[in-house]
């Protein structure tokens, strides 16, 4: 009893409040990553695991360029392009060489580990201090970081909304939804898969780039498990959006809710830390949440039509007869 009381009194509510803005800022940075995951996982119907590597690539490229004196905004663009290239590699492995998409993503991710180390001169991390460099976002000034990353997220969502409404973007959506129909309508589905993977990984690298600036360093392991966090954000956002908007949930709202999902994820993360739980357990926690959320639609459907239920109904019929 005494131990619990001591634990509770050691938690300061003010402490939590003071930490939440940082959670929001981080969530916004990761929202870009979640939008990238959404493009592959939901629109293209591909589980792309390259993102774990691309996230670190975005950070590594950013850190090295900024240390070399390149303006951070240019570093952002270069990181984006590097992500696009990485996504293209996955896409080409998949479409040109016939490697299953999941495996293609794993191969790219694996290769990127070495490449990311090489980019940083074979050191596991590179510091970019906000003292020395004029960073776009920094954990030093959380309020500015929030404003800047809201702008990034808003612009990206607007651009994605436009892109997926164009002739090309629409054909990418149909490619993920029905490849056979797409081909019959003259759509080059292999090209579209490469474009989608490239765009997705570009966004993930962008997220990694901002994350490195926010944290003040790039780490070769920063992207580990990123796919799961991205999925968690997508799922939290979709569940929340469907609950609030129901049928009015459209593509634009969906993306906004995914961004909110990423923020919520980091709020939860912040609370977990505040509760003084071991942050290393967060990965287990996240995996369980994602597994549950992915399983719910299946289980819902299974409940409607299951052998168990059919058997019960049948037994009931016998009783009635």
């Amino acid at each position: 009893m005494g131990a619990i009381g001591e634990y509770l009194s050691s938690l300061s509510f003010v402490g939590l409040l003071s930490r939440l803005p940082a959670g929001v800022a981080q969530g916004l940075v990761w929202a870009l990553m979640a939008l990238g995951v959404y493009i592959t996982f939901r629109i293209l119907d591909i589980a792309d695991l390259s993102v774990d590597g691309t996230f670190s690539t975005g950070g590594a490229v950013t850190a090295v360029l900024i240390v070399a004196g390149v303006p951070p905004i240019v570093a952002v663009l270069v990181a984006f392009v590097c992500g696009i290239l990485a996504g293209m590699i996955t896409g080409l492995l998949h479409t040109r060489l016939g490697i299953p998409a999941i495996l293609a993503g794993i191969l790219t991710q694996y290769a990127l580990y070495s490449i990311n180390l090489a980019i940083m001169g074979f050191k596991a991390n590179t510091a970019i201090s906000a003292d020395k460099f004029n960073l776009i976002v920094s954990g030093r000034d959380v309020n500015v970081a929030i404003i800047v990353s809201v702008c990034f997220v808003a612009v990206i969502i607007a651009l994605l909304y436009w892109f997926f409404g164009t002739e090309r973007g629409m054909s990418i959506r149909s490619t993920g939804c029905n490849p056979q129909m797409s081909k019959a309508q003259g759509i080059n589905i292999n090209l579209n898969k490469v474009v989608g993977l490239a765009l997705s990984n570009g966004l993930v690298a962008l997220s990694g780039c901002l994350f490195a600036q926010y944290s003040g360093y790039a780490d070769v392991n920063s992207g580990r498990g990123a796919i799961v966090i991205g999925l968690a954000a997508v799922i939290i956002g979709e569940v929340l959006g469907d609950a609030i908007l129901g049928k009015r949930m459209n593509f634009l709202f969906r993306m906004i809710f995914i961004a909110i999902g990423a923020i919520i994820y980091y709020m939860i993360y912040t609370i977990v830390l505040w509760l003084k739980m071991d942050p290393n357990m967060m990965k287990l926690f996240t995996a369980v949440i994602v597994a549950i959320c992915l399983a719910v639609p299946y289980l819902k459907n299974a409940r409607k039509s299951s052998f168990h239920r059919a058997g019960k109904n049948s037994a009931g019929g016998k009783k009635n007869a």
Partner: peptide, 22 residues
């Protein structure tokens, strides 16, 4: 995709898919 979007895809069959509103 919507009925209109499916038809729009079909309307571009045999043409390039451009970066203009669908």
């Amino acid at each position: 995709l919507g009925i209109d979007e499916n038809l729009a895809l079909a309307a571009r069959r045999g043409h390039s898919r451009r970066l203009v509103w669908g």
